[in-house]
């Protein structure tokens, strides 16, 4: 059975430092008063226009196996392949910041308000990432297993060998249309500020892997290292 919850904006709004870092600004006090004002304005617009919401559902390993297989386009070996069979619990999810904030970003760019538009864009993208972290926390609270080194991490189609076409089966199972997310022909979610994936819970050791898969040589983020 699937569940739908709305996030509180204050729970997912990114820290000012993080937003500035995204712009390559190492320290808040390096920026002008104007940029500080711009940030405050963008936060105000963000609070007015974003409607963060998630749909999620527990799923058995057998059913997930089929979803993960997707359209048969995954790399031969992937981290998720190795991790999910050892998991205690799997939860599929799709979340979005809603269409209003994406539309607002577009309007701002059309009106040549590039600075406010891209500040808002960054805040919305970072909030989507934070919403995934919030899901990981929520799932952790729900688990009966409170061992110390217990870890719940999200993995998404489009990352680390899980082909983005995997979105198709994920959507067929979860029906994120219920919260206003649809897929386009190239398996992108509309609205743009949306994230999908699976939460895998188990002892932290299972999330550790050697990042030497065939596709890792092209990876610029190496984001697995931060998470492991």
């Amino acid at each position: 059975m699937s569940h739908i919850i709305r996030f509180k904006i204050k729970d997912i709004q990114p820290e000012k430092e993080v937003v500035f870092k995204e712009f390559g600004i190492p320290k808040i006090d390096l920026v002008s008063e104007k940029i500080q004002q711009l940030y405050s304005e963008a936060i105000k617009v963000f609070r007015e226009t974003s409607k963060p919401i998630v749909i999620y559902s527990e799923i058995s390993k057998e059913k997930f196996q089929n979803i993960f297989k997707g359209e048969g386009n995954n790399s031969a070996e992937t981290p998720v392949d190795k991790i999910f069979p050892k998991a205690d619990n799997l939860i599929l999810f799709a979340l979005t910041m809603g269409k209003e904030v994406s539309e607002k970003i577009e309007i701002l760019f059309k009106e040549n308000d590039f600075a406010l538009g891209s500040m808002l864009d960054n805040i919305a993208s970072l909030s989507a990432d934070n919403a995934v972290k919030k899901m990981e926390e929520l799932a952790a609270k729900d688990t009966k297993n409170h061992e110390e080194n217990y870890l719940i991490l999200a993995y998404s189609p489009g990352y680390c060998g899980w082909d983005i076409s995997g979105q198709k089966k994920l959507f067929e199972y979860l029906h994120p249309e219920k919260i206003g997310i649809t897929l386009n022909d190239s398996f992108l979610m509309i609205p743009l500020k949306s994230v999908s994936g699976v939460l895998i819970s188990r002892k932290s050791e299972i999330h550790k892997f050697e990042n030497n898969f065939s596709f890792c040589s092209l990876c610029k983020t190496k984001s697995c290292l931060e998470r492991m």
């Binding site: 104007k34 940029i35 040549n112 590039f114 600075a115």
Partner: peptide
Amino acid sequence: IFLPDVLMSAKAMYA
């Protein structure tokens, strides 16, 4: 300067 500075100048340029 930083990207937001560039973008504010770009808005001014369009004006």
